[in-house]
Amino acid sequence: MKSLSIRNLSKTYFDPYAGKHVTAVQAVSLDVPEGEFVCVVGPSGCGKTTILNMIAGFIPLSGGEIVVDGRSVSGPGPDRGVVFQSHALFPWKTVLENVAFGPKMRGVPLADREAIAREYLALAGLAHAADRYPNELSGGMQQRVGVARALANQPAVLLMDEPFASVDAQTRMTLQEELTRIWQERRPTIIFITHDVPEAVFLANRVVVLSKGRVLKEIDIDLPRPRVWDALIEDERFKTLSAQVLQLVRSA
């Protein structure tokens, strides 16, 4: 069974400044089998965030269908966990309470949901930060909490919207390596939006290049795992794949 299936997806909206309808996404179809790690890349305005917002159920579709775990998407739901670029942690909740939020909404008793939260915090390497507030953490730690919070709800699909775009370059590389480690341990289905080509190639099993609201090309990334930057940065296959994707993105 497929974890996520997108059929003929489209999105048009009325631009009041231009005074006309604009097509952001047209006829996009995509299948993501259970446990796959897909990165969607494309230049600004290619519709990648719009697609993610439709999968998450934040904005309505203009046409087509999104099916997650056999159910058609209409509105947000706990089967699709989201990691935001702006981390979107609840400032008035501790790190532990943030991660336990999903289980709390499912009615999991306090002791059980705290155990779940501690498990996922440990997975994200943040066991020591459980009782701190989000504003006391660095940007990298905030994003780790965001990942742990989404995973603690055990979603069918994990949607990530440029989650590492606003952290410094060194932290970003560490976060990327950690995400591949977590993916290998837990095998969540991930759709990861980014405009950073090396990031997409480093993380994904498959890179989807988007252009002007359409799928330009899908490229399988057959690099071995575990992936670490020290090894891949000089790897010929990585360089070739990155160059290939970059060329597509620039032509887009």
Binding site: F58, P76, P78, G81, F84, S86, A88, F101, R106, N153
Partner: peptide, 23 residues
């Protein structure tokens, strides 16, 4: 309150009344 916090709450499974009390 940032839109993202509402969205985060809803995608974590919070029903509307919990969005009010929790967020």
């Amino acid at each position: 309150i940032p839109l993202e916090l509402h969205r985060a709450g809803r995608s974590l499974g919070a029903p509307p009344w919990r969005i009010v009390t929790e967020i």
